[in-house]
C-alpha cells in the first residue's frame, strides 16, 4: 500500500482541541477574577505574620484539665444535638412519608387512581419535603439562631428540619420500593390503612428504615459540628470561638477530637447497620 502525496498529515482533532482550550480560558479568567483569585495575598507580610503566629500557637495542643473538660462537655452536646435532631427528623419524616405514599391509598386500590384531595395532600407533602431539604442545614441553623437565639436548640431544630426532609424522601422511596402486594391484599380483605401498614408494610421495611436513619445520625454528628460555627452549639461553636481568638492549640485539640468523633460515629453506625440487617 503506497502513501500518496495527496494525503495531508494533519491531526483532525486539532481544531476541536484549540476551541476547547479557548473556551476553557474564556471561562477560567473571569471565574478567577470573580473568585478574587490572588495567591499573592498568602505571601503578604502582615498576613504571613498573623498566620505564622497562629500556626505557632498550634503546638503544643491545649491539654489543660479545665479545657479538656470543656471539650468533653461540648463533644457530648454535639452527640446529643445530633441524636435528638435525628429523632425529631424521623418524627417529621415518617408521617410525611406515610401521607405521601401511594401504596396505602384506598381509592387507588379500587379505581387505580387516587381521589383528587388525596393526590393534593400527597403533592403538598412532597413539596414541603423538597423545600426542607433544599435549604442546607447550616443555613437553617443560621436562620433559627436568629429566631431562638444561640445554642443547642438551634442545632437540634436545624437538623430536625433538613434531615426531616431527607428522611421523609428516603422513607417514601423505601415504602414504594417494597413489595406492596402483601399490604394490598390486607387492604382488599378489609383491613384498615393502619392495620395494613403495621402488618404488611412496616415489617418488610423496618431494617432498611433503621439502617438509613442510623446512617443519617452519623451525618448529623458531622453536621452538628459544622453548624456550631454559626452558633448552633456543641463542639463547632467552641472551635469557632478558639479560631476567632487565634488560639491554635485549642483549635488543634478540638480538630483531633472532631476527627476522632466522626470516626467513632462511623464505626458505631457501621456496626448498628450490620446488626439491623
Amino acid at each position: 500500500m503506497r502513501v500518496t502525496d495527496t494525503v495531508t498529515y494533519k491531526d483532525p482533532a486539532w481544531h476541536t482541541r484549540i476551541t476547547w482550550t479557548v473556551v476553557f480560558l474564556a471561562v477560567l479568567l473571569p471565574a478567577g477574577w470573580l473568585a478574587e483569585f490572588n495567591p499573592a495575598v498568602l505571601w503578604d507580610e502582615a498576613n504571613l505574620r498573623t498566620v505564622g503566629h497562629f500556626l505557632g500557637t498550634f503546638l503544643p495542643p491545649a491539654h489543660s484539665l479545665e479545657f479538656l473538660n470543656m471539650v468533653a462537655i461540648a463533644t457530648w452536646k454535639t452527640i446529643a444535638i445530633a441524636t435528638v435532631g435525628t429523632v425529631l427528623a424521623a418524627i417529621i419524616g415518617f408521617p410525611a412519608a406515610l401521607a405521601a405514599n401511594r401504596a396505602l391509598s384506598l381509592s387507588a386500590l379500587t379505581t387505580g387512581r387516587m381521589a383528587p384531595w388525596a393526590a393534593a395532600v400527597r403533592w403538598t407533602v412532597r413539596a414541603v419535603l423538597i423545600f426542607l431539604r433544599s435549604v442546607p442545614e447550616v443555613v437553617w441553623a443560621l436562620l433559627i439562631v436568629r429566631a431562638v437565639g444561640l445554642g443547642d436548640t438551634a442545632g437540634v431544630l436545624a437538623i430536625a428540619l433538613t434531615y426531616g426532609g431527607m428522611l421523609g424522601k428516603v422513607y417514601l422511596e423505601i415504602f414504594e420500593s417494597t413489595d406492596v402486594e402483601a399490604t394490598r391484599s390486607l387492604l382488599r380483605n378489609g383491613a384498615g390503612r393502619t392495620q395494613g401498614f403495621f402488618y404488611g408494610m412496616l415489617p418488610a421495611c423496618l431494617p432498611e428504615l433503621t439502617s438509613y436513619t442510623v446512617y443519617r445520625w452519623e451525618c448529623a454528628i458531622r453536621a452538628s459540628v459544622i453548624m456550631g460555627f454559626v452558633g448552633a452549639g456543641g463542639l463547632g461553636q467552641q472551635m469557632e470561638l478558639s479560631m476567632r481568638m487565634l488560639a491554635g492549640g485549642e483549635v488543634i485539640t478540638m480538630l483531633a477530637v472532631f476527627v476522632g468523633l466522626v470516626w467513632i460515629a462511623d464505626q458505631v453506625s457501621l456496626q448498628l447497620r450490620k446488626w439491623t440487617e
Binding site: V51, F229, M239, M243
Partner: peptide
C-alpha cells in the same frame, strides 16, 4: 477529615 466549612474558617485567617 476537616470539612470545607472548618477549612474556610481557618483559611479566612490567612487569606482574609
Amino acid at each position: 477529615a476537616v470539612p470545607e466549612l472548618v477549612w474556610a474558617a481557618l483559611v479566612v485567617v490567612a487569606a482574609g
